[in-house]
Design a protein around this nucleic acid. Sequence first.
DNA 1: GCATTGCAGCTTCCATGGAAGATGGTAGCT
DNA 2: AGCTACCATCTTCCATGGAAGCTGCAATGC
Lengths: 234, 234
Amino acid sequence: MPGGLKAIEQAGDRALSLVDSAYAALKQAIRESVFAPGYQASAGELALRLGVSRTPVHEAALRLQEEGLVRILPKRGIVICALAPDDIREIYEVLIAIEAGAAELAANLPEVERFALADDLQLETDRMEQALAAGDLTGWGRADEAFHRILVERCGNRRFMRIIQTVNDQSHRARMLTLRLRPRLPISGAEHRATIDAIRNGMPEAAREAARHHRVRARDELLPLIESVGLRHL
Amino acid sequence: MPGGLKAIEQAGDRALSLVDSAYAALKQAIRESVFAPGYQASAGELALRLGVSRTPVHEAALRLQEEGLVRILPKRGIVICALAPDDIREIYEVLIAIEAGAAELAANLPEVERFALADDLQLETDRMEQALAAGDLTGWGRADEAFHRILVERCGNRRFMRIIQTVNDQSHRARMLTLRLRPRLPISGAEHRATIDAIRNGMPEAAREAARHHRVRARDELLPLIESVGLRHL
DNA sequence: GCATTGCAGCTTCCATGGAAGATGGTAGCT
DNA sequence: AGCTACCATCTTCCATGGAAGCTGCAATGC
């Protein structure tokens, strides 16, 4: 955790509570694998590292537990949760269900918003293709992530966004890995375009099915890959 | 909150922490409208009522906030969240997306489990019809709730269950109201049967669409009803 | 050699007190 | 009268200490 809370409190600027800061710092540390899955920490130790007392650390840990990132073992400590292949499957099933719903909602938006959303989605898809042409894998991943985030963020259902946020936090480490594992990427562009067109033209069923199909294919492609590599947890 | 924590600690039997007890007690109190939406409480007051100190109450409040049941206003207090019609819409959209996904998964289960699940779902549907014939509205609601819970509980995705649990906690009060508001109920039986048959016969697409259609119809029936009654919050 | 028991060191859990912040009413000023 | 500034009071936020519980190891008994 380089620099402890300082960086985060600066970044958040606006009067973040110690709990919020600790929560953000720990979450980031987990996302970036500063703490490996299975690592067992104590609230006291983390509090020392972050320069706060045990209380805010404990409350942050409770929130992280709520989101499935850590488990608090009574009287024993805090352990970083690992993801089994079954978890990846479950997470993809959530993505399939929710993003399909989000695409349907998006296609039902008033025309102005629909067009603006479609434009923004197109922008990210273009970025993906550019990154692909330049061989920039990280850039491709970032644009892909943005596409999916924007779709859910702007569909008009805040609960969808919340759900997606939770599973994304859980699966970020897996995502970083599978990005490098995949043999080929270019299909995504066409599938994104199908979703975008359906949204722009206000066709809810088509949008839903396009988004569904996109995630279903990704799941069917990645799951066997993960299993074949023999990952027990990540 | 009749009896405070005592009843809950007894019920839970197994060494429940004070935080868990307080969480359960507060959640139940909110579900049963002991605290009306908009009611503002302080952690100290609730702690006094429950017979514990402020710390476990505060941690329970954090969990409830995570689930959207209360809001903690910094330095001000804890307020019980109200549900606007827009929230009901969002909740139904979540139900539509997740339950459709659950039905699809269920239809893909191994035959033994599929049959057992279909039987149990049929049992609840039968209970609904019996309750309907007897004019027992509460019994009908309970069986309907059981049907939907069992479907998600046994589909093989624990995250689905968790998501549904959260929105159900939020919408329980609204459910109690709309149950009495609806002009007629009997259609549900047939729609449940369509879902059950598709699951039993291992037809994922059919199961998904049946479950989807069931919730879509319920939404399209209830939302205008709620708006027409002019509920601003519940 | 093997099982059991006791203990030391760790952990969380919960209570409590002080500090800082938000609010609403009142007094004082223009 | 209307507006501002202040202050009493209530609240959460966070630090800290004591109590209880879990684990692993060593010592003891068989």
